[in-house]
């Protein structure tokens, strides 16, 4: 009976044959049900919308979209633009940089995400990454190809599983053993904060530390300092403020310069003192006061320049 019904539904046997095989009464019921549904449509719309709305202005929000849909579309467009940029760059080095006050999200060729803090730059070699992706596709477990990016400044990374991933900067290398972490590279050292998973950070002198989720380490003036327990789950600069815990003034000053696009003349001020606190990312006067007044450091602002001097 199942067999017959199935055959009839596929059009392999006729209504008459179905009646013969399963009885006229049952067959007529099936014929009536299917005959009715065959004549249904959800509505009589011919076209839902004009596709030109999409093709003529790919970045525009379409008016009927719900708010969450526009976010999703924006994210997709961002990724599409980034991949396009990646495709058209002829040179084998790909780089992205941000200006003062700008935060940019970049998708790496393997789908990992890098979020650049203000005034930072990352770059990578396209050819090396091609090998990485090819190796991944061929399922070879050699892992000879490494995912590498170079950093100037600060970046947050959400790394996809795969071959070794590392971030190189002037002061050292950070290799991923896990997922979400941030590297802040400044003149006299670098700071690593790991939000998820684990990373290994190796300084220029080859000394290394393993940084687990919720931990931070500072390499400053040639040595690793004690572990810092993080109480935040994502970088403060994504929330429009920057937090420092026992950070050298050089690191804080560098951050100020990048955030606000200023240059700071340190003069004879001792910048190895430590600062703990939060500064806003969009109010320079508040930020300067917050950082320098506790140390009794005088500061004078002249356009894009800030001149420091020791107070009394």
């Amino acid at each position: 009976m199942d067999e017959n019904l199935s055959k009839w539904l596929k059009g392999e046997i006729s209504n008459e044959e179905l009646k013969e095989r399963i009885g006229s009464e049952e067959a007529l019921k099936y014929i009536q049900i299917v005959g009715e549904v065959d004549n249904w449509v959800p509505d009589h719309t011919e076209h839902l919308f004009d596709p030109k709305e999409i093709t003529s202005k790919p970045k525009a929000k379409v008016t009927t979209m719900r708010p969450w849909l526009s976010y999703a579309a924006a994210a997709v467009i961002l990724i599409a633009v980034v991949s396009y940029l990646w495709l058209i760059m002829g040179d084998s080095t790909v780089s992205y940089s941000t200006v003062a006050g700008e935060v940019q999200e970049v998708e790496l060729p393997d789908g990992s995400k890098a979020t650049l803090a203000p005034n930072s730059e990352i770059s990578w070699d396209k050819n090396t990454w091609k090998e990485v992706l090819a190796e991944k596709a061929s399922l070879k477990s050699k892992k000879s190809a490494k995912r590498q990016i170079k950093l100037k400044g600060k970046v947050l990374l959400a790394v996809k599983k795969g071959s070794p991933f590392s971030v190189e900067s002037v002061n050292g290398v950070v290799e991923v053993l896990g997922t979400v972490f941030e590297v802040d590279d400044f003149e006299s050292g670098f700071n690593v904060r790991c939000f998820e998973g684990k990373v290994r950070a190796t300084a220029v002198d080859q000394s290394s530390v393993i940084v687990a989720g919720g931990e931070g380490y500072l390499f400053f003036e040639g040595k690793w300092e004690d572990k810092i327990e993080l109480d935040e789950t994502s970088p403060d600069w994504l929330q429009n403020q920057t937090k420092f815990g026992n950070a050298p003034l050089t690191q804080v000053i560098k951050t100020l310069e990048k955030l606000y696009g200023i240059t700071v003349e340190k003069g004879s001020v001792n910048t190895s003192r430590r600062f703990t606190g939060r500064i806003p990312n969009d109010k320079l006067d508040v930020a300067l006061r917050t950082v320098f007044s506790p140390f009794k450091i005088n500061y004078a602002q002249e356009g894009k320049k800030v001149i420091l001097s020791e107070g009394n």
Binding site: L48, P51, I54, V62, A73, A80
Partner: peptide
Amino acid sequence: LEKARDFTQEAFIRLWNNCAK
């Protein structure tokens, strides 16, 4: 029907954004 239409539009937007791939 209305939600179905919205989702359909979104699916086509995503197709357009990924047209090269």
